[in-house]
Amino acid sequence: MAETTVSVPSVAPFNPWKVVLLICVGCLALLFLAPTVGVLLSSIKTTREIAFGELWTIPGTIYWGNFIEVLTNPSVPQYFLNTIFVTLPATILSIILGVLAGYVFSKLPFAGSNLLFLVIISGMFFPPQVILIPLFQFFNSLGLIDTLWPIICVHTALGIPICTLLMRNFFATVPNALREAAILEGANEWQVLIRVALPLSLPAIAVLATLQFTWIWNDFLWPLIFTQSDEKRTIMVGIVNLKGQYSVAWGVQGALSLIASLPTLIVFLFFQRYFIKGMTMGAVKG
């Protein structure tokens, strides 16, 4: 009996278990943090320091040269602009399309709508490589290779499944009676969507916005396939490109990675709640 009272969490002021747990979690956290810290450290050290194995020590002085190098490189702002030009429209468009489809699937179901929904949702699960070649051929025949258009289009289309799924699930929580009350008051479906369903779904929109923004910003495959010239690169392809230019300038590479990740990091830290919700909701309710 005495044994069990020790192991069961009680109201006792000091609990040795908690400390053990804390130490365990702390160690794991340190291990998990190490890679990220490495990049941080590299960005404020000179190449010499890194090469001499001083990457993993706490720096005495901060070296800003890497950041200056990155920020004065004329390509970097261009990469950023390109990424923004891709990410913002694709995020917004995919959410709009998802809202439209999700509304129909949750509030205006019809014979066969479940099948159509499943077909759209399954798009989430397939490796994008499956449609790589035909899309390349398609945009090539339109003369759009080496522009940002194909990237925007493809991300919009590939965002439809997750956006539709999340919006359908969210709209399903909006009571049918609200829609019906609005219709009795003279609203048509569009007005129900805009004035009733959408204002109630802002949390879901926030979830999707953070999710889509992060995915599209971080994507590497599509810009790699669709762009060729340096002026059209997005930041993630740009980093890989600049690796050649800064082949042993590890600090510059670190600074570059950091700057490239800044937007998603900010989105993540500020909208963490939505982000986690989106990841789990999209996954759990599939």
Partner: peptide
């Protein structure tokens, strides 16, 4: 429905949660 001159009061009230009482009443 809106042209039939009927009104319905729902069991769940069906009030629009994002609108004020005045906006709810004046919705139509």
């Amino acid at each position: 429905p809106s042209d039939r001159r009927v009104a319905m009061v729902f069991q769940s009230y069906a009030l629009f949660p994002h609108l004020t009482v005045a906006e709810n009443i004046g919705f139509g």
